[in-house]
Design a binder for these strands. Sequence first.
DNA 1: TACTAAAACTGACCACTGGTCAAAGAGGTG
DNA 2: CACCTCTTTGACCAGTGGTCAGTTTTAGTA
Lengths: 164, 164
Amino acid sequence: MFIEHGYEKVSMRDIAKDLGCSHGALYYHFKNKAALFSEVLAFYFDELNLLIDLTMKQEKNDKLQELLLGFLRFGLNYPYQYELMFLLKSEEVDSLMQQPAAASYEKFAAAVKKASGKDLQNDMIYSIFLALHGFVSLHLHRVPNFEGAAKAAAVHVDFLRKTI
Amino acid sequence: MFIEHGYEKVSMRDIAKDLGCSHGALYYHFKNKAALFSEVLAFYFDELNLLIDLTMKQEKNDKLQELLLGFLRFGLNYPYQYELMFLLKSEEVDSLMQQPAAASYEKFAAAVKKASGKDLQNDMIYSIFLALHGFVSLHLHRVPNFEGAAKAAAVHVDFLRKTI
DNA sequence: TACTAAAACTGACCACTGGTCAAAGAGGTG
DNA sequence: CACCTCTTTGACCAGTGGTCAGTTTTAGTA
């Protein structure tokens, strides 16, 4: 439900109705709405980490491009998840999200360094990440999925590749 | 109030209490909360446009750097405004915000082109904008103001300058 | 001055939200 | 049976954005 309609639009009562229980019962299992949602999101951090691993494992000559494009694809194909993984700042959710987000970033940064074949500066990798994040956060929800911005994504990644 | 506490935190009743009227009265003047807020934001689009104009008018050798840094400074010093100018996607607000946002972008893009002294491709300018947007949207609300990320901002702008 | 029409405002009301909690139910063990 | 823990319920709270019939204020006219 969160994935289809977003965090704000889904109420605890909606979830309870779908489960066939009262909304009060949810508060026995989860401290609050944010805690419930963050457990849903944990799955998607794993998914992103897995995606990075898979990209690095496959036999391709241009892993770097695949890495950058893969990030954009992930962001736009899981818009609500991405929004809460890297964008939302509501105090409640953010405190639960910062640690896994940082871990995923570290994994991404290490992969980029390795895939580039060069000894890239950390600052540079961070700038590249910011540029990718900018792309996703601007196209988020304005485009139905990655396909809707695939061409622009390729152009952006191309721009970034040239800087490396 | 919006600027200090953010869109979600300020209720129509809060505003009405501050004005010394009933919250119903607000709905006589504004279709809804989003419409009220978007009128507040119009001021900040003007502010950003003015900032671009001023940067281009001043006698400096490195207008380009000033332009890019200025955008980051604006974003981090007016975090709630920036959030709703370029980040928020609630259907209500977004439809009111897209046009002025696009206009401000066009102004920015033209200024970057002129300041660079080269005939930059539009795609490239857009990528640069996305990279700046990524910086702001990631640091937003995690840092009290521009000063809190000034060093990282300088590094990021430096990275972008090198690509031009 | 008295009247009128428009503009502005009020506050009760609606359906909804996240969250709390005493009470009630289940299920298992001795 | 009693006893105990785990789980669930649903009434309740304070708050939200939004609506609207009814009232007041304002300003212009006869």
